[in-house]
Amino acid sequence: MTLPALVGLVVLLAALVFIGAALARLSRPINTEGHSGDEQLIEKVNNLLPQTQCAQCGHPGCRPYAYAIIKQREPINRCPPGGDRTIADLAELLGTTALPLDSSCGEQKPIQVAIIDESVCIGCTLCIHACPVDAIVGAGKLMHTVISDQCTGCELCLPPCPVDCIDLVSPATSTSDWQWPRPA
């Protein structure tokens, strides 16, 4: 190897080291700003989740799950209430492939609402505390009732009930939310 070649090599290496250092410097302050980018992304993911707050995904709510999807690379197929449609939407947003629903989280069920058997209810308020979306009203020693419009069907009120008076039923089709059938 000749001297000029060595010089060139050194120059090349020096230039690369310099550029590498510059890039490292450049990327540092931006990283903290990248944080807010993640926030936007979490918000977008959160918007796609069904907001049942059912915790079937193993996170204490929809937003924590969204956080986990973005920050901890949690799989997107852990939301039974959202089912295939939510998974497809998430896959499209995040540019990944849609996976089948993780059955360890639960299965997709048709829309349900909780209903309290008012003759059995003892007014213990345990379900009121369990409801993540404040859809149960009532007071101590008085019977409780579910506001069926606000109920997300998350089933979280079932375990705490000491007298087992809560059932999940499919809401009656009313004329206002009747849908045209899918043509064959």
Partner: peptide, 17 residues
């Protein structure tokens, strides 16, 4: 690398996708 930094800053969604 430079492009990646810029994109991450400008459009985190695109960066993710």
């Amino acid at each position: 690398q430079f492009a990646e930094i810029v994109i991450r800053q400008r459009s985190p969604l695109l960066h993710r996708v």
